[in-house]
Amino acid sequence: MDLVTPSIGLVFWTLISFLILLVLLKKLAWKPVLTAIHDRELSIEDALNKAEIAREEIATLTNQNESLLKQARAERDEILKQAKTLKDQIVAEAKASAQAEGNKMIEKAKTEINNQKMAALSEVKNQVATLSLEIAEKVLRNQFADKQAQEGLVTQLLNDVKLN
């Protein structure tokens, strides 16, 4: 049974070869390779973890940004609203003051006109009075110049007056 009888030579050389191979490969290949694979796996895991953290950070940042934006929007709305009320107020105020001013001026003008009118009227009155007096004087002077007529008139008037 040659097939199942191990020959001492092959046993010896296999043992030597295997042990040499084991020692050499352990030094030259398995140690560096396994360390490199292990290191790479660690670095990949590390990178993945970091990416996860970065993703979370970005998410929180986005959230923050969004809330900031919301806040900014609200603030803007608030400011706009305030501005609008302010504007309305100013316009109303302006309107009111303009109205008041106008009224005042109108009032002033009215008074002035009245004053002027009064002045003019009094002037006219004075003139009219003077003129009337002059006319009256002249008329009277003219009338009194004719004594006859006067006496006739007085007689007539006296006739008219009925003593009752």
Binding site: I8, G9, F12, W13
Partner: peptide, 21 residues
């Protein structure tokens, strides 16, 4: 007689060892 010859199998094994290395 103790035969430690480099037989065909031993030589082939050496070749495999060299290839693996």
């Amino acid at each position: 007689v103790y035969d430690f010859s480099i037989t065909k199998n031993v030589a082939a094994m050496f070749i495999a060892v060299i290839v693996i290395l």
